[in-house]
Amino acid sequence: MKKNIIIMLAMILSALSACKKKDVLDIHPDNAVYMGNTSSSGVVSITVTDVGGSAVVTPRLANLADKPVTITVGIGEKTLSNYNQKNNLELQPMAAEDFKFITGNGDTTHGEATVTIPPGSFESSVQIKIDSINTTKYPYSKRLAIPVIIKKVNGYRLLSSPQWTIVQLNRQLRTSIALINNLTGSIELKPKTPYSEPMSEWTFQMSMIYSNLSRSNLTTAFMSSGGGGEFYTRISASNGIQIKNGRDGDDTWTQKALSPNVWLHISYVYKDSKVSVYVNGELQKTFETTPLYLGNTEQSGWSIGNSNYKNNDYIREVRFWNRALTQAEIMDKLYLPQDPATPGLLMYMPFTKEAGLTELTNKWNVTIPSASRISFVDNVIFPASKLEIKQ
């Protein structure tokens, strides 16, 4: 009997100990910590100039707490590797010694930082400060990022998502661009060797500033003599961009208003008989279409613009890829120049003074309409929302 009593007491004490441990672990079952991001992608893009650059990451609480909550953030290279793999990117992490974490109370560290969310508050922020980028260590061909993860939380559970913010670094670029004061027809690009097989997916990109978006039948680009259905586009201030695939109608427009005199980086992404329209990296609309591909004829190719291009329209680049770029890839390639030998890049025409009006993969013939007036503007700065010239 005495032995049985001892065994029962031991079991009760063990159960009480387990309950106590569970209570400690679940001390705040209605609250949790996560990374507060301004977009669902979890990616923040910043520009680093000759005077540096900075960004802010924000650990948050799901609910208010009645006592301080301590959180440690740090570098998550595995997170960046997974992001690269998912989005077909090659972002490289900046070394911890090349940037600083600065907390709200002024503490400066490298590698990781600890902040406290005070009672009655939802969040605390950590500034990421880059003084400069060493171009010898990080040449312009490298695309850089700082992946920040929540590494440790004291006394609270960590939500499974989002746990990270990726700070993508853009570097200021100075280049020349083309000024179109009069286009007497379309700029034609025809492959020197016609495509013998239909393409199951592709991406066509162009970067423009339109001085006026009220002109009728103002086209961005279209597929001439395509092997599939019709692919013709129009652009307007009120209706956005039209994908004309054999018919007109309100539903053939994105219905996303656009502004003149700003850079519009336009991407048409085709896959599985659908075309997704992106402007400045943001999805505008996805359209159901017929199959769309270049035909196996010398007449089939791409046409850019029309005779409605005039009076201070600017063009930066035109690109054509053999695959459907992801949104992350579109953002990554938004304004930086490309290597013509980049895998998957079928056509690359940068419209710079250095390149002239030539296509740099040397796989396309370019025809500029006669009597067109196209010149070049130097010292144009990217990234920028409007035309920015820095002498």
Rank of each mutant, 00 (worst) to 15 (best):
K2G: 04
M11H: 09
I12N: 08
S17V: 12
D26A: 14
D30I: 15
Y34G: 06
T38E: 15
S39K: 15
S41T: 12
G42D: 03
T47W: 01
T47C: 10
A55Y: 03
V57W: 06
N63E: 14
L64C: 08
A65I: 04
K67Q: 09
T70P: 05
T72A: 01
T72I: 07
V73R: 00
G74R: 02
I75H: 00
K78I: 07
N88V: 09
M94I: 09
K100R: 15
G106E: 07
P118A: 12
S121A: 08
S125P: 11
D131F: 08
Y138H: 11
L144Y: 03
S160E: 11
S160F: 03
P162M: 09
L169I: 15
R171S: 12
L173Q: 11
R174M: 14
A178G: 06
M199L: 12
W202A: 00
T203K: 09
M208I: 15
M208D: 01
Y210M: 11
L213K: 08
T219A: 07
A221N: 05
F222C: 06
A237I: 11
S238H: 13
S238N: 15
Q242C: 04
W253C: 00
A257S: 15
N261Y: 12
L264S: 07
L264A: 07
I266E: 03
S273K: 15
K274L: 13
Q284H: 14
K285A: 00
T286I: 11
L292C: 07
Y293C: 05
T297G: 03
Q299C: 02
S300Y: 02
G301L: 03
W302H: 00
I304W: 04
Y309T: 01
R316F: 14
R319D: 07
R323P: 05
L325P: 00
L336K: 14
E354I: 00
E359T: 10
N362Y: 05
K363L: 13
F376N: 00
A384K: 03
Q391L: 01
